[in-house]
Design a protein around this nucleic acid. Sequence first.
DNA 1: CCATCTTTGCGTAAATTACTGAATTTCGGC
DNA 2: GCCGAAATTCAGTAATTTACGCAAAGATGG
Lengths: 219, 219
Amino acid sequence: MNKIEVILVDDHRIMCEGLKSMLSDSHEITVMGCVRNLSELLIKLRILPIHVILLSCYEPGDHDIEMIRIIQREHPQIKILILAMTAQESFILRTLKAGAKGFLSKDADRNELIESILTIRNGYDYYSKSISEIILKRYLNQPGNSSAQRNQPSGVLSDREMEVLKLYAESYTNQEIADKLFVSIRTVESHKNNIMRKINLKTTVDMVKFAIRNNLIEI
Amino acid sequence: MNKIEVILVDDHRIMCEGLKSMLSDSHEITVMGCVRNLSELLIKLRILPIHVILLSCYEPGDHDIEMIRIIQREHPQIKILILAMTAQESFILRTLKAGAKGFLSKDADRNELIESILTIRNGYDYYSKSISEIILKRYLNQPGNSSAQRNQPSGVLSDREMEVLKLYAESYTNQEIADKLFVSIRTVESHKNNIMRKINLKTTVDMVKFAIRNNLIEI
DNA sequence: CCATCTTTGCGTAAATTACTGAATTTCGGC
DNA sequence: GCCGAAATTCAGTAATTTACGCAAAGATGG
């Protein structure tokens, strides 16, 4: 089989060069280049025959998800492998939904990196061990289940609640949120209470921190 | 000259191996090992003749500062080089104050990494270019200056204000903070107002985010 | 000893919270 | 289509907290 042609996407020069130097020892893999952002990547993809994109995500956010979507749309045959420094459940699920074929946690070593590249090149998905657990846990917590856990914090916020939560975390007051959403201030308060009850929080500050932890807002 | 003996401290296997593989090409440097935390490091330092410690900081916090202090106390002759993914001013200054001899930003490349190791080995400090600017800016803003900028947001919080800010960010209410500090709730409110005026913030949420950005609290 | 900063405090108006309750809409499953 | 659960929308009222301007005693450093 021909060597697998990989391109690195990483904003950190040190990391880029480290990965490159690490992968260049492998007989099955050729690193075709290293780019720092989406536009550089798209240019390269037009001229290079790439099989696998290794995408580093340091501070997961909408930006990364959007990037995955665009790459998938333009080059559906290319496999995307995520190398993330954090293993936030919501982020993992979003990358997979957006089209990523594999997800490596920070605890992966050289062998796992190479194995994962080979695996997704062959058409299978690959998740780091710790990641698989998270995904499994998520499925167990899915809606279609017994009907006994009504009042537990299911943690599933509605779209509207998510919207309100984001606005709170962006420093808007109740009144400002009400104005923005064209509803009464009472409604906003209601949403806030429901959010805090669902996620089991006490204060607004905790709510903001929740939003930050889950990358609902930029900080 | 003998080769410089370096040890890597990095919690991320991939990064560790990448750095190692990158540095092992150099003729002047030998990577003596790679550890994941302080206790592993201290064990190694007892048996290996290390010149330089390369310490990766992904999410800067008190933890890193404390680590630097401990290493410096136990092994004052060893030079510590920080490789940080973020260039938060307060963090940079704290690492340097704690005893680090160099600070690399994420934009450093292989050459800069090697050069910085050689530089601090020779007894000089080394800062990435972008870092130097930050440090300079800070010095310009230092107390001992003209006396004209009295009312500007100097951004220098008093110890007490810092304390109050942290407690706010940890979700304590005014009353709880007052109880903790044995002062009236009015005093706490006053501190809060002064903090917000100094840093030029509008809301409590903004204050919390400020605390998070500057790593005043764990999140 | 003077200027400045810190720490402490108050009064009043405004905003938020804590409760409880409830009407309308939406939506998935049978 | 129908049913029930959840989502979305709003309200009343009392208690609490906050915003903001003002002020004064204590610490501190040149």
